[in-house]
């Protein structure tokens, strides 16, 4: 049984209790993905599975045979930052940084969802192409907590990437 993590094949196996989060951190040594609450409440463990953002703490690794997982390590490197990573640095979108990998993976998933036309709770028109305003970004990122309270700068960083793409 295998799955792909950041383009590399990885063997699954061992205890079926292993969450995808623990698999990434312990079996793959990819510690960018963070364990915050371990109950799907904080979003620090957000990764992309087949391009869709999920909480990696609330799913078992064994359920992901054949899937393609992207973690923060797969989005960019220190020498070649993803535009969201560069924007978080430029806008100081963190203080302690613990929630940041989850914030960035979540923001990547969010931008792709909006591109697909997905509405949110605050969208006035369910069928219109959503425009990622500050209000929309705040609602769509509400699954990622930042206990340092860097939210205004996080929204600034995401907005810069969204507007750069327009």
């Amino acid at each position: 049984m295998q799955l792909s993590v950041n383009g590399e094949r990885r063997d699954l196996g061992g205890d079926p209790r292993t969450t995808l989060l623990d698999f990434l951190r312990h079996s793959c040594g990819l510690t960018g993905t963070k364990k915050g609450c371990d109950h799907g409440q904080c979003g620090a463990c957000t990764v992309l599975v087949n391009g869709i953002r999920i909480n990696s703490c609330l799913t078992l690794a064994v359920m992901h045979e054949g899937d393609e997982v992207t973690t923060i390590e797969g989005l960019g490197t220190p020498a070649d930052l993803h535009p969201l990573q560069a924007a978080f640095v430029a806008h100081d979108g963190y203080q302690c940084g613990y929630c940041t990998p989850g914030q960035i993976c979540s923001a990547k998933g969010m931008i792709d969802e909006a591109t697909r036309g997905w509405a949110s709770f605050v969208s006035e028109d369910l069928s219109a192409t959503p425009r990622l305003t500050r209000e929309e970004i705040a609602e769509r990122m509400s699954g990622n907590l930042c206990r340092c309270g860097a939210y205004p700068n996080i929204v600034d960083a995401i907005l810069e990437v969204v507007e750069g793409a327009r």
Partner: peptide
């Protein structure tokens, strides 16, 4: 379900209720 064009057009109540719950990460699973 909430993104399905038929649900959004013909059953907006269902789309609205789903979007009122949890987070995108949770609703994606």
């Amino acid at each position: 379900c909430a993104a399905d064009p038929r649900i959004r057009r013909d059953y907006p109540l269902l789309a609205r209720a789903i979007l009122a719950g949890a987070t995108f990460q949770l609703r994606n699973k």
